[in-house]
């Protein structure tokens, strides 16, 4: 059973193919990560799933229903867009109620109170949206998304503007949705979040799918060719070591990609000559590293995202 199925979907804006011949299946009940840099076609794909725009070619099924040419998304699907979309002059409770009713939830009063309580916003229910901080507005937007108990929740960059405490609250809530049987599509360019939360990952770059599948499988496929180290090198560079094909410097850590068949011990030996080795670990490649490998230097912006 798939919550979302895309088949050979292409969407063009003018001559630019924002999404190019994309096929994708999202299993029901999973947390599915959509990753990719800005402008890679993530939001376009999400908007097509939400029926906000229609593809030029291909077919899309959402919750078992063919969506093309069918009007607005059903009440079973909810969408948290990347940018906040709240009427500034409405009160918090009013706007949640409005979005709940738009999803066909007729009497959401008790649920609204419960959600405001959970998000720590009970004191703000009669305040206008303009009075909220960015993080609070984000929480209100989140409540608006999930208030009508959707079966498929699409979250586009839900963690922007949140402090760690609130980010943890969000993660907790999202996992709750999953436990409740909902399918969650999480779009983000923050690879570490995707790594922590997602069962499966879908990666899009320049409109094309470059990666798709369960996270474990992806990491296995890219093998154990990564060594994570912390070395005090006194300025020596690490990319001159024989057998090392690439270095990603995270600051405190460095990830070395090594040629197949290279003996890790030889590399360790070499490192010890360069400086003091504080940490040495044969690791599976991080999502970020995999992404860099696929997308090449063009995707470097992801590093800074």
């Amino acid at each position: 059973m798939f919550a979302v199925e895309l088949q050979n979907v292409t969407k063009r804006f003018g001559t630019l193919a924002a999404v190019d011949d994309l096929s994708l299946t999202v299993p029901a009940g999973s947390v599915y990560g959509f990753i990719g840099p800005n402008g890679s076609g993530k939001t376009t794909t999400l908007r097509m799933i939400m029926r906000i725009i229609y593809p030029n070619h291909g077919s899309i099924r959402v919750l078992g229903e063919d969506v093309i040419g069918k009007g607005a998304a059903t009440d079973r699907v909810a969408y948290l867009p990347e940018e906040r979309g709240l009427y500034r002059t409405m009160k918090v409770r009013e706007i949640i109620r409005f979005y709940a009713e738009l999803k066909g939830y007729r009497n959401p009063r008790a649920d609204i109170a419960r959600w405001l309580e959970r998000m720590g916003l009970s004191d703000w229910s009669d305040k206008k949206v303009t009075a909220l901080s960015k993080g609070m507005a984000q929480k209100v937007q989140f409540i608006c998304t999930v208030i009508a108990r959707p079966e498929l929740v699409i979250l586009d960059e839900p963690f922007t503007g949140l402090d760690p405490v609130n980010a943890a609250l969000f993660i907790d809530t999202i996992l709750d949705l999953k436990r409740g049987g909902a399918t969650v599509i999480l779009s983000t360019h923050d690879m570490s979040v995707a790594e922590k939360m997602c069962d499966s990952i879908f990666m899009i770059f320049k409109g094309k799918k470059v990666l798709d599948g369960p996270l474990d499988g992806i990491q296995d496929a890219y093998g154990t060719d990564t060594i994570r180290v912390r070395v005090e090198t006194n300025g020596h560079r690490l990319d001159g070591i024989p057998g090392v094909t690439g270095v990603v410097d995270f600051g405190r850590y460095q990830e070395l990609r090594v040629r197949d068949g290279t003996d890790p011990q030889a590399i360790l030996e070499h490192l010890m000559k360069l400086g003091t080795v504080r940490h040495f670990e044969q690791a599976r490649p991080s999502l970020h590293d995999i992404f860099i490998r696929i997308a090449g230097p063009e995707a470097q912006e992801v590093q800074h995202a």
């Binding site: 908007r47 939400m50 906000i52 009007g71 607005a72 998304a73 009440d75 699907v77 909810a78 969408y79 867009p81 940018e83 906040r84 979309g85 709240l86 009427y87 500034r88 979005y99 738009l102 999803k103 937007q141 608006c144």
Partner: peptide
């Protein structure tokens, strides 16, 4: 205010 996207997720 990007309210459009949220609303268009529910109605045409």
């Amino acid at each position: 205010q990007r309210i459009a996207e949220v609303i268009l997720a529910s109605v045409t």
